[in-house]
Simulated assay, not measured.
Amino acid sequence: MGTQGRAPGQRLGVASVVLLVLGGAVSCTGGVGGYLFTPTRVVVSDSMKPTYTTGGSIVVNMLAPGVERGDVVLFDSSVWGERGLFLERVVAVGGDRIAYQRGDRTLTLNGKPLEEPYVLDGDPVAGSPFAFDVTVPEGRLFLLGDARGNSADSRYRFEKTEGGTAPVSAVKGTVIGTGHPLVVGFRTAVFAGAAVLAAGAVSGFAALRLRRRAGAAAAAAAAAAQQPAYAGQVPPPGA
């Protein structure tokens, strides 16, 4: 069909539908993806102070492919006989040897002093109830809070699990910053989708106006065709 058979605003109308569908899909992908895979959680204790404090917000990457030393993780505390999700830092992974001797000012990891600039008051051994020397089993993690004097972490779980550790399978996600590619990607998708939706709405409005104008013009033309050419004038002789 040629352009003569196309209704006014038809192209804009089709573009509007396409943009609205596309924008909705992109926005939903970003919103749902962000909600499911990079959710925001509220910190409920000061065990990770000063890094994270009670009432603060964190973003959790539920798609993390693995866990590494130094990661802050959200995990299921039922493996320690507790309820809910706990927030702790991974200080040793499977195969590592983590130890503390009375009088030491730091923990040792694989025989070397462990530097932990993130701990509260610069005291990584605060609150340690006793000396320990643990070789972490494969597939498990030794977890400590940054506020060592206020964290019921692996140091207090020796009676519950192997060396006070927690299984990697209990980890629900790792804490990431708002600048992480996943977070940026999902949030960008939401805003980009909203922009496309807006463009679709504008296109739809423009198409509607074109159709209304074309309809008004057609109605006016039809009305003019039904009246004599001399309507409103003195009729010619013999009329």
Rank of each mutant, 00 (worst) to 15 (best):
G2A: 04
A7P: 15
P8L: 04
P8H: 05
G9W: 00
Q10E: 14
R11F: 07
L12T: 12
A15W: 08
S16K: 08
V17G: 06
V18Y: 03
L19Y: 09
L20N: 05
V21A: 09
G24Y: 01
V26T: 06
G33H: 07
G34L: 12
L36A: 12
T38M: 03
T40E: 11
T40R: 12
R41S: 03
R41P: 00
V43L: 05
V43T: 09
V44N: 09
V44A: 10
S47G: 04
M48Y: 01
T51N: 06
Y52E: 00
V59K: 01
N61V: 01
L63K: 13
V67C: 03
E68C: 09
E68L: 09
G70V: 13
V79T: 13
W80T: 08
R83Q: 14
G84V: 07
L85P: 01
L87R: 01
V90P: 00
I98M: 03
R105G: 13
L109I: 11
N110E: 14
K112N: 12
P113C: 13
E115H: 15
E116R: 15
Y118W: 15
V125I: 12
S128T: 14
P129I: 09
P129A: 13
F132R: 04
V134K: 01
T135G: 08
T135W: 03
V136P: 00
E138Y: 11
R140M: 11
L141W: 02
G145F: 02
D146W: 03
D146Y: 05
S151F: 00
R155F: 03
Y156F: 14
F158S: 03
E162L: 05
G163N: 01
P167N: 01
V168S: 01
S169Y: 03
S169G: 03
G173I: 04
G173C: 12
T178F: 15
G179K: 10
V184H: 11
G185I: 11
R187A: 08
R187L: 11
T188G: 14
A189D: 06
A194P: 02
A195P: 11
A195R: 10
L197P: 09
A199I: 05
V202C: 01
R209M: 08
R209H: 10
R209T: 11
R213L: 05
A216R: 13
A216C: 06
A218C: 07
A219V: 12
A219E: 13
A222P: 10
A225T: 14
Q227D: 05
A231M: 10
G232I: 07
Q233E: 15
P236R: 15
A239Q: 15
